Amino acid sequence: MFQMHPAIDTPADETILWRYMNLERFLALLHARALYLARLDSFVDPWEGVWPNTVVQALKSEAGEFSHYGTILEAAAKLKYGSFVSCWHASSTESAALWDLYSGKSGVAIRSTVKALKRALSFPASFFIGSVRYLDFDKEAVPVGNMLVLPFLKRKSFEHEKEVRVLYWDPKRVDWNNPEAGESGIAMEVDPAVLIDEVYLSPASPDWLLKPLEELCVKFGFDVPVIRSSLYDKQVY
């Protein structure tokens, strides 16, 4: 079930969201009727789920003993192995950069809203939806004391992503002796008909792919607009 939390900045229900993916991932979503949430350490950015340097320095100066400081940071480092997220792009328009990064020539993007995401997801445990905060990790401070904040912090270099995340956090899933040995991701049940407002086909895709994609959606039982992105179409005078 979706849950609000004061430490997490939940975007407004009307916020438009995009999820860029390859065709295989889209097919998996329709077939399994599930949204895949990847474990936080599986992303390319090695700073996922870590405290900014400002927090680290504050802990070092306040801890008194190195052992206490080490315990806090070690716990935070291991707890990220219990964090599972699905990443969305908040924007009223398509993103050329994200098309290129995540979808390829046969990729798709699904268009949704925060409200639809809340309604479409079904999970027995609590999950959260929040906007990522982009910080200068060497200068900007954040409140310490709530581990739920960490999955929603990224460096300013990633600000173009305008990311909204679905987070499921469960410390019980962490193997404290070997945290990397746990599950690499989880599946969260989703209703595609509620989640998806429109399906966009990559602007780099061949024209013939549009019809099979429309038929694929119908085959799986939901009728939504399927649009080939015109982002790279030439201007016609």
Rank of each mutant, 00 (worst) to 15 (best):
A38Y: 00
S205H: 09
A120Q: 12
R25M: 14
A187I: 00
P151T: 01
T113F: 12
S131Y: 05
S86M: 01
D45Y: 06
A96E: 11
V50N: 09
K60H: 12
K78M: 09
K154Q: 03
R119L: 12
F137Y: 15
H5A: 08
M21K: 10
V236L: 15
T10F: 02
H68G: 01
D45T: 03
V114I: 08
W99P: 05
R133W: 02
N146I: 09
G185N: 03
S157I: 11
S202P: 03
Y232M: 10
S126N: 15
A125V: 05
I110C: 06
E140I: 02
S61H: 12
F220V: 01
A77P: 02
A28E: 15
E24N: 12
S91H: 06
K80V: 04
V144A: 14
R228G: 02
A97P: 00
P225Q: 07
D233E: 13
H89Q: 01
G70F: 11
P46G: 04
P203Y: 08
H160G: 01
E24C: 00
S95A: 07
A12G: 05
G49E: 01
S83L: 10
L213H: 03
I129N: 07
A204Q: 14
A187C: 06
F123A: 06
D13G: 07
K78H: 10
A63Q: 07
V132M: 00
Y102K: 03
S91G: 04
L117W: 10
E14H: 15
S42W: 02
L27H: 08
V142G: 04
A97V: 14
Q3L: 10
S126L: 13
I227A: 01
W18G: 04
A120R: 12
S61F: 09
A38N: 14
R165K: 09
W88I: 05
M188Y: 03
I72N: 03
V114G: 04
Y200A: 04
G70M: 06
V108Q: 02
R133T: 07
W208V: 10
A97Q: 07
I72T: 15
V44K: 15
R19K: 13
G82A: 05
S131I: 01
S86D: 01
S61Y: 04
D233H: 09
D175G: 07
V236W: 11
M21Y: 03
E214G: 06
P212R: 00
P143M: 04
L59A: 10
A181S: 15
P124S: 13
I16T: 14
S126K: 15
R155F: 00
L210D: 03
K78I: 05
D100Y: 10
N177Y: 11
G107I: 08
M147L: 13
L73A: 01
D100C: 13
A28N: 15
S103Q: 08
L148C: 02
E183Y: 04
K80I: 06
T71I: 10
L117M: 11
S92H: 13
S95V: 14
V199M: 08
V144P: 03
